[in-house]
């Protein structure tokens, strides 16, 4: 229990570092040096030290929204299994709770966006809701497939002990399809390049950035932290999914287990430790792949984004068909 809490805190603290990997990758691919790894921490500290400006039109909802968003994400992270360790909290049916909590955070951000009375933010909010609606369908279909394989609705039961792979009938191909679909959802929910460009601030290309145009100071810092944590959440889902695969396929040699049963080097400590290293390695590679995808694609026209999400839906449907009766 304590171990999981400490691990979760470590990952929460590391997530800005992981987020910087994306920019570093993009810079590397272009031939630049890129931002320092600790850049996001400096940004956060700078923002937390600043003052706030609020506009005349807003209501207390505007001030409260980033806090609700951050609390929702932190609560969701408590349900996330890391590596093969079970999460802090879990109950049957928590998958539904998690996704509705994420929706709660999103609702408040959208409310804050329209609260300012600016038409740009209204535009961004409309697109945000539309794309999340499509993403929800794909996510729920993924969980329907997981349910069919394991008869459980707990997030921890899918990933702890690799139940999905070892105890079920899934072969590699459905897992690949589902990982690709989850990757598309990651790009969608975190507003990365094919869906939205996080670097530009033109009104035609913005979805997430435009919702937070009017934020400043600590509120903006909270929002940055929230987006980094959200990216970590989705990337962690993908790593969890791919992890038992690598253990079973023995691509990465696992640190040899010493046959000692007590003390610091006991089996109880080393085995999860090695799985944690594998987990972190896959996590970092997910971020690198995001960076690579961002550099190699342009942003889609808004009309093409539904097709993009529909393609991931097709992948999930195929994966479901392949594992339905096994």
């Amino acid at each position: 229990m304590m171990r999981q809490l400490i691990l979760l805190l470590i990952f929460i603290i590391i997530s800005p570092l992981l987020y910087a990997i994306i920019s570093r990758t993009k810079a590397f691919l272009v031939g630049k040096k890129g931002i320092p790894f600790l850049f996001n921490y400096y940004t956060l500290i700078k923002l937390f030290r600043k003052n706030v400006i609020y506009s005349k039109t807003i209501t207390p909802i505007f001030k409260v929204a980033p806090i609700i968003n951050l609390s929702a994400i932190l609560l969701v992270l408590m349900f996330l299994p890391l590596g093969n360790l079970s999460p802090l909290l879990s109950f049957k049916g928590d998958v539904l709770f998690i996704f509705y909590l994420l929706t709660l955070g999103k609702i408040f951000m959208v409310l804050a966006g329209v609260d300012t009375g600016s038409s740009f933010e209204g535009m961004g909010c409309a697109r945000e809701v539309f794309f999340s609606a499509l993403g929800e369908i794909v996510l729920f279909l993924i969980f329907i497939m997981f349910y069919r394989l394991t008869n459980q609705l707990e997030l921890s039961s899918y990933f702890v002990e690799g139940k999905l792979i070892l105890h079920s009938k899934a072969t590699l191909i459905p897992i690949i399809f589902i990982s690709i679909a989850l990757f598309v959802i990651l790009l969608l929910e975190n507003a990365r390049v094919p869906v939205d460009d996080p670097l530009t601030h033109l009104e035609l290309t913005m979805i997430h950035e435009v919702m937070i145009l009017d934020y400043s100071g600590p509120d903006l810092g909270i929002i940055h932290l929230t987006s980094q944590l959200k990216m970590f959440f989705y990337a962690a889902l993908i790593s969890n999914l791919l992890m038992p695969v690598t253990s079973v396929m023995s691509i990465v040699p696992i640190i040899p287990v010493m046959p000692v049963t007590s003390g610091m080097f006991s089996v109880d400590v080393i085995l999860p430790f090695s799985q944690l290293i594998v987990f972190t390695a896959i996590l970092i590679s997910v971020y690198v792949i995001v960076g690579v995808v961002e550099s190699s694609m342009g942003r889609y026209q808004l009309k093409r984004v539904p097709k993009f999400v529909l393609s991931s839906l097709v992948l999930v449907v195929l994966a479901t068909i392949l594992t339905w009766r096994g």
Binding site: T171, L172, I173, F177, V314, L315, L318, L322
Partner: peptide, 19 residues
């Protein structure tokens, strides 16, 4: 682990839908 037949068939299905 990787079932080639299943892989090919799924690729064909995917290509159809992409078309």
């Amino acid at each position: 682990m990787i079932d080639l037949q299943v892989g090919f068939l799924s690729l064909i299905l995917l290509l159809n839908i992409l078309t």
